[in-house]
Design a protein around this nucleic acid. Structure first.
Lengths: 214, 214
DNA sequence: GATGAACATACTACCCGGTATGTTGTCAAC
DNA sequence: GTTGACAACATACCGGGTAGTATGTTCATC
């Protein structure tokens, strides 16, 4: 079972690659995958297609790389929390905070992740690209399971109450993801303001799960 | 017994129109607006483009009509509840139930509504189609305000607690909408099962809003 | 000064929205 | 019962946009 290796690619190798990824993520967020042309991405970089196709074999692959990068960021944000001892509900709350903050901080990448999941659910991809995508989907599914396991444990601890585990997790994650749709940074917004928004979101989800606020 | 109206070329045309709308909604749900071609819709109808363009002037207009139909259904579902007397929190709960049920029952249309809102937020439409769409967006915004007003009132009544009204409404509606993404009807699912799902969703949102369960 | 990476330029093949035109059935009037 | 008119499509075609490719160009490194 070979999973994604975090630092697999050479670090200092390509600023150019990262620039392309970031610009493409912005485009995909603003117009969606289908409506974004490679020329659009190139234009944003003040470059041409040649540059992009020099680094990425296809549009679908570019999309997939953004997807992977976004998920890498998410795993990275959760990493220090996952191993924390203590009650599951407390761990879930911290995980939720980190996740939600990630939705805000890396919004373009997270929108790509979202669209990637949607694309997979719709099954509208070429059969061969689908393998690349479905590997990423599994990556993302396991990510969701991190939260799923915690709320399952929290329920067993008597710290949460809900009927169906899958549904509860779906709704909770949807809540935590929601900022990618309605959040946009306001001029002069401080870190404290952002954290406040995160707290409102996480609080909503926690209450939704009947979490015992200690 | 004879109900044929003179000069009414409507009935057969309306059936055909509805068939097209429904087939197109299915396609848009499965592949998204951009990835769906008019030929795709025609193929699903076992017909050709001619039929579609005979009834709808453009792809964007077809999309808009589905959007409008979906919203019409939503308003219709809320109509009898809106005028009910009693506490706001109670009214909100009933509205939420009706809305969520609608998400499940008319899922293809609701997905189109969702994508329409996304398209508008992204601003990726031709300037002239944008007028048609933004009118629908306003239609949809007023719909959201129905819920917004109720939770504002409920908070004033002391029956709900949350910090930011806009954020709370956004999250709550997102929760109620979420079935359009993860729900799919299971074989042998009864109405009672569906209602149970609705209850889980609405319950989650209600607790998220700190609703006083009476 | 040869080589290859990192692009830009030029071009092609294809798909898709839209249109223009052809075909069929119906129905009304003569 | 023939004809004309029109609705409801089907067929054929066109033009624009786009993913992908093939080829040129620059520049650094050795």
């Amino acid at each position: 079972m070979v999973l994604v290796e975090l630092g697999a690619s050479e670090p200092s190798a390509d600023n150019s690659r990262l620039d392309i990824l970031s610009a493409a993520a912005d485009c995909f967020m603003e117009r969606g995958y289908g409506a974004t042309s490679i020329d659009d991405v190139a234009r944003r970089l003040r470059a041409t297609k040649g540059r992009i196709y020099h680094h990425f074999p296809s549009k679908a692959d570019l999309f997939a790389q953004i997807f992977r990068t976004g998920m890498d960021l998410n795993y990275e944000a959760l990493a220090p929390i996952r191993s924390m001892p203590g009650k599951a509900i407390e761990r879930w709350t911290r995980l939720a905070r980190a996740h939600t903050m990630q939705m805000i901080k890396a919004k373009p990448f997270q929108r790509v992740v979202w669209e990637g999941v949607e694309m997979h659910l719709r099954g509208s991809t070429t059969p061969e690209q689908r393998n690349v995508l479905s590997e990423l989907i599994e990556y993302r599914t396991r990510y969701g399971d991190i939260f799923r396991n915690e709320i399952a444990q929290a329920r067993a601890d008597g710290d949460m109450q809900f009927e169906n585990l899958s549904i509860a997790n779906q709704i909770a994650l949807m809540t935590l993801n929601s900022p990618i749709f309605w959040y946009s940074r306001r001029p002069g917004e401080a870190d404290r303001d952002t954290e406040n928004i995160v707290e409102q979101v996480v609080g909503f989800a926690l209450r939704g799960l009947n979490g015992k606020t200690g």
